[in-house]
Each structure stands twice: as structure tokens, then as C-alpha cells.
Design a protein around this nucleic acid. Structure first.
Lengths: 236, 236
DNA sequence: GACCCAGGTGTACGGCGTACACCTGGGGCT
DNA sequence: AGCCCCAGGTGTACGCCGTACACCTGGGTC
């Protein structure tokens, strides 16, 4: 009684709403799909419409959630070569966003980037420029990195084997897609002594592999004084 | 009267449902977000529940739509080096999927890959293997390519300038994110004589740039007899 | 004491996916 | 001929969603 009805506890504000929404999405299996204004309101001990005094709409709520988590990315480590600095900053972003698996999908679904995302992108471009890359090359590098700038893995589907439920179905799959089967088999062997014992792929390794291929390629272009106009001309 | 009530026109089947759904999503601005079972039923002159005699659920409908469009990707061109062949197949996928802008998001939202997607992936792995790449390297190459295998651009947001509505806001943006502003400015200049006159970025160029960086990097690793176990050891 | 207004409430609307019971008409059996 | 079956379309209903709009309420300002 002391709190539940008495003092009309701290009157709710934007930050508390966003924090509760992030916590909810982190906890629930469905992430933001499981999040509804009604459930969030219930969690805060308030009626659904009360939320609209603090966020304009569900979309704005999602944008706020994104900004909250992206804002938590570490500032760039000073010093080091540009490649190492970019690598560190991206891996740092990845560390943060992996704690919020719903974030990639939400970020991509927003109609415009949030300020914190823009800030992150700006910082990465800054690292490229400080390393001597042309604005032109930095631009295309940013496009090439795409979602990886925030640590997203660009998988086409969830490659976890989820216990390979049924050897019958697995055999049928292998017969229809022999190359996939072969690759899956080697992957399973290769990782027996690696970090991912249970089968499936080592996300972190795959991410760093792709990131390094991209950064190395960009470095090579930089050293060769690549320009997009030259590349365009070469195509014709 | 001859048709509308008389002969109970062709009794609807899975293919017609899927085709209508694809056409609807292609036509409507919101893509599959604008698609509902009710609207699709209305379009087919039928009551919503009738659709459930042909698709098990909305999710299954979406999977069917994906399979319909992904199934339309050209078979791989024979001959040529593996890099060219992979490049061609991916650009072919891109050509198809660009006509269905809703497809990337739907494919990523499905809990499991559809058969046509698996077939496409299998074919690409086959090209790698035929070119002499190890199963190990092919595996990591597939992860690195990720969504690009189907021609997705992995943009963090829509970079089209949408008419830069307000120079005031633009200036403020430039002040807060100087590196982004600089890069955007160079991009705008660079493309004045290029394919994208109106500002914004040339999607196709960005896509091919990233694709070539990745494929060239993979080729280099192949020629250096790269193995993942070696790479893992090197990290420690 | 009068007023204001930030912030919480209650009700209602139109939309969604889909479970479930029902009808209906043509085709295959005996 | 008479029967039944059942694929395929129907109607109703449930519980969820986001949110518009009118309303109340209690502390703060003049």
C-alpha cells in the first residue's frame, strides 16, 4: 500500500519508457515483435494511452530504443592505424548490439537513421579520412560495409542446426543440395576443436572474416589511389 | 452475369493465390506490409478464410511468394572463370529481386530458407567448388557474401536525398555530422556526369563495388591456400 | 481562490490473423 | 438411381493491435 497506491510513484518519463521497452525486447523471445504498447504499459503499471504522453507513436518508440542502445557504443580508441581503429569501432558496435538481437531488424525498418546511428557513421568516416582515404573511397567503403558498420551479420537465415531434428530429412536435404551438405559437413569438422563445438557456425569468426576481407580490399584500393570515376571509365 | 455469378470461375489454387499476392506486393507502396489476407481475398473475389484452403498461414503465404520470385532466377551461365560465373549469377539474382523490393525483408524474416533460396545457394557453392576453392573457403565466402548472394544491398537506411527538403535542416545536419556532409557532397559531384544525376547514390555501382571487393579478396585467399584453421591459429 | 496544464484514464474504432462450424455442388461408388 | 464424400467457399466470432478523442485530477503559479 505504501507504494502501490500511495505516493503515485515517480511520474514516468521518456527515458523510463524507453528503458522499459528495451528491457522488455531483450527479455522476450520475439524481441520487438512481442512488444506492444499495451504490454509495455502494463509493465509500467499504467494504461496504454499514457505512453503517448512520452512517445508520439510506436515507430518513435522504436527509434528511441535504437538510439538508446546505439548511444552506448564506446567512443573510438585513439591512435593506431585507420584499419585497426575502424575494426575496433565496428567490433565494439557489434559487442553492444549483440546484446539486443532485435536491433538490426528495427534499425533497418526505420524510415530514417536515428541521431546516434548517424553519429556512429560519422565517426567511422572520420577514421577513414584521418587515415588518408579520399572522401570518394570512404563513401564507397561505407556502402560496402553497410549493416556491418553496426556489427550486423548479413545472414540469409539462421544457420544454427537446431539439433538437426531428423536424420531422414537431413539426408533428403543433402541429396537435393549436395554442395550445401558438403560445406556444412566440413564446417562441422573444422569447428570441433574451435570455439563452436555444438555445430553451426561461429558467428564471430564469420563476421571478422568478412570484415577483414572488406577492410583489406579497401586498403588495397587506397594504396592504389583508386577513384570511382576511374573505375566507372574502366567499365565502359 | 455470364461470369460473375454463372460458371463459378476457375476455382482458385495455390499458384493463383501466390501470383496475386506477389502482384499486390509489387504494386502497393508498402510491399508486404500493405498485404493482408483480407485485402488479398478481396482482390481474388473471395472471402478471407477461403485463402486458408490453399495456404496454411500468412507466413506460409510469404514463403510461397519468396519461392515464386527466387525460382525465377536464371540458371548459371556455363563456362567462364568461377569469379565471373559467381558474379553473373549474383547480378542475375539482383536483377530479379529488384523487381520485388519487399523480397529482402521477407526472406530475412522467414524462420527457415525456402527451397528456391537453398537451390540458389547450392548453385553458388557449386561454382566456387568447380573453380577449385576448398569447401572451407567456400563456406566462409558464403557467409561473407550473406544477403548479397541474392542481390540485397545492405544499406543501413535509404540514402536517397528525397529532395533534401529544407536547407536549414541540412545545414544543421552538416554541422553535427561533418564527415557525412563531406562525403555526401563529393558523392553528389562525382555523380553529376555519372548514371545517377539526381543526387543520392548509384545503387548498382555500390553493389558491384562491394561485390568485387569481396570476390577479389576471396580469390586472393584462394590463391594463397588460405584455411580457416590456419587463420584461427594466427589469431592466438 | 482561480486558473492552468502536464500527465494519467476510459472508451471506442477500424484493422489484423485465424479457429471453427457450416454449406454446397459435382464425382465416384454401389 | 440413389447415396455419400469431400474439396472448396462462407459467416461468424475471438483476441490482439495502434491510436484518436474526450475526460479527469492534482500540484504549481499568480
Amino acid at each position: 500500500m505504501s507504494e502501490s497506491e500511495g505516493v503515485r510513484r515517480t511520474p514516468l518519463n521518456r527515458e523510463r519508457v524507453l528503458a522499459a521497452a528495451v528491457a522488455f525486447a531483450d527479455r522476450e523471445a520475439g524481441g520487438t515483435d512481442a512488444l506492444s504498447m499495451r504490454k509495455l504499459a502494463q509493465e509500467l503499471g499504467v494504461v496504454p494511452m499514457a505512453l503517448y504522453k512520452h512517445v508520439a507513436s510506436k515507430e518513435e518508440l522504436l527509434a528511441g530504443m535504437v538510439d538508446t542502445v546505439v548511444g552506448g557504443i564506446d567512443p573510438p580508441a585513439a591512435g593506431a592505424d585507420w584499419k585497426g581503429a575502424v575494426r575496433e569501432r565496428i567490433l565494439s558496435a557489434r559487442r553492444v548490439l549483440r546484446r539486443h538481437p532485435w536491433a538490426p531488424r528495427v534499425i533497418e525498418s526505420l524510415p530514417a537513421p536515428t541521431p546516434a546511428v548517424l553519429g556512429h557513421l560519422d565517426a567511422v568516416i572520420g577514421l577513414f579520412r584521418a587515415g588518408g582515404l579520399s572522401a570518394d573511397l570512404a563513401h564507397h567503403a561505407m556502402h560496402a560495409l553497410g549493416g556491418r558498420l553496426l556489427g550486423f551479420t548479413q545472414e540469409l537465415f539462421d544457420a544454427s542446426p537446431e539439433a538437426a531434428p531428423d536424420p531422414r530429412a537431413a539426408a533428403q536435404l543433402a541429396a537435393r543440395y549436395p554442395h550445401i551438405a558438403e560445406v556444412a559437413a566440413t564446417a562441422a569438422h573444422a569447428e570441433e576443436g574451435g570455439t563452436a563445438v555444438g555445430g553451426g557456425c561461429d558467428d564471430q569468426f564469420e563476421f571478422e572474416f568478412a570484415l577483414d576481407v572488406l577492410l583489406d580490399g579497401i586498403e588495397r584500393l587506397h594504396l592504389a589511389d583508386w577513384t570511382s570515376t576511374g573505375a566507372r571509365r574502366a567499365v565502359r
